[in-house]
Amino acid sequence: MKNKKFKGILASVMFASAVLAGCSSEEGTGLGEAADGKKASYTFRLADNQPADYPTVLGDEKFAELVEERTDGRIKIEVFPSAQLGDEKSVLEQVQLGAIEFTRINANPLAEFNKDFSVLGLPYVFESEDHLWNFLESEKATELLDGLEQSKMKGLAYYDSGSRNFYATKKLKSMEDLEGLKIRVQQSEINIDFLSALGASATPMPYGEVFSALQTGIIDGAENNLPSIDSSNHYQEAKHVLLDHHQRTPEVLLMSDTIWDKLDEEDQEIIKQAALDSVETQKAEWAKWEERSEKKLKDEGVTFTEVKDIKPLQDAVKPVVEKYSKDYQDIMDAIEEARP
């Protein structure tokens, strides 16, 4: 087993080295300039685990379109949806190596690489979409993206991910119905503690395994935004949604810092601005999909229960919020200042 693991790591490193040595489509002196003195052309890859028509993928494609347009076709970014290049964890590892140049990922797993991101996953800290985006457009939120460089990743922009809610194969008429249920969560200490505070049993597992786990009863439910419940077909097994809007954790568009550092300043600026300019397209697509998903789920017989009073929930998770925010008071202050 150790020998196989070593060979796998060696293969990844060799592949990353090949990418760094020859990601230009023209034979040249390396990243930045082709042999004839002209700026080199590149074809990069962007990994996304969502389906091709999902709002984050449409944002990815807008980003790729803008980069190609602004470099007169010199830099092309091919978008690979539906986890074609691997699950989130393996893709992140390859981004760090430079074997994959770009990815889009939810901010929650990024807390493993930069603890500051854990604040964005705290339950009930953002009271609305306006509150969230006021913060994401702040200087402090930009600092969070920049802080990923220490983990060999370059944060480019935030994408919308709506609010996360619970859904289950069993009836959910109130938060008390979550007690004792096995709920799938992303791999995050905050999520595990959060679910425990509500009396549920947190069950971390890859996103791609959730549908079969719902079918077989390995889990009783999960938590996610409505478009994800729709696109994943989880609603076919889990017919009950509890709208508590417990998290409004954004998505993050990332680039390998290894590749970023090899580009010249002009290309860096083009890529960064294209990422920021793709945000409005992604947000607009998100709003349309969210409305469409809610209608579809209701038409498919999914029941919705809105949690109208979140004060008891905020009280229940207060120890969790305090535990994970005590060392990040500056970020919490910025979140408070962003309230509409």
Score class of each variant (00 low, 15 high):
K7G: 00
L10N: 08
G22L: 05
E27G: 09
G28E: 09
T29H: 14
T43D: 02
L46D: 07
D48N: 14
A52H: 11
A52Q: 14
L58Q: 07
D60N: 15
D60T: 11
A64P: 02
E65S: 06
E68L: 05
R70P: 02
K76L: 01
E78Y: 12
E78A: 08
E78N: 09
V79I: 11
S82L: 02
Q84R: 15
K89Y: 02
K89R: 15
S90W: 09
Q94D: 14
A111D: 07
F113E: 04
F113A: 02
N114P: 00
S118C: 03
S118N: 13
V119N: 01
P123N: 09
Y124E: 00
D130F: 05
D130E: 15
D130M: 08
W133L: 02
L148E: 01
E149Q: 10
E149T: 08
G155T: 09
L156E: 03
Y158T: 00
D160S: 06
S163M: 09
R164Q: 13
K171Q: 08
K173R: 13
L178C: 00
L178P: 02
N191A: 00
N191E: 00
L198P: 01
A200S: 07
M205R: 03
P206V: 06
Y207F: 08
Y207W: 11
E209I: 00
F211R: 15
F211C: 01
Q215G: 05
G217C: 09
D220V: 02
D220T: 07
G221Y: 06
A222D: 10
S231P: 01
H234A: 02
L242I: 13
R248W: 12
T249A: 12
P250Y: 10
E251N: 07
V252H: 03
K262C: 00
L263V: 10
D264A: 06
E269K: 15
A274R: 11
D277N: 04
S278T: 11
A284Q: 15
K288F: 03
K295R: 15
K296G: 01
D299W: 02
V302K: 13
E306M: 12
V307L: 08
D309A: 08
P312L: 11
V317I: 13
P319H: 04
V320M: 10
K323H: 12
Y324D: 02
K326C: 08
Q329H: 10
Q329W: 07
D330T: 09
D333T: 05
A334D: 04
A334E: 15
A334L: 13
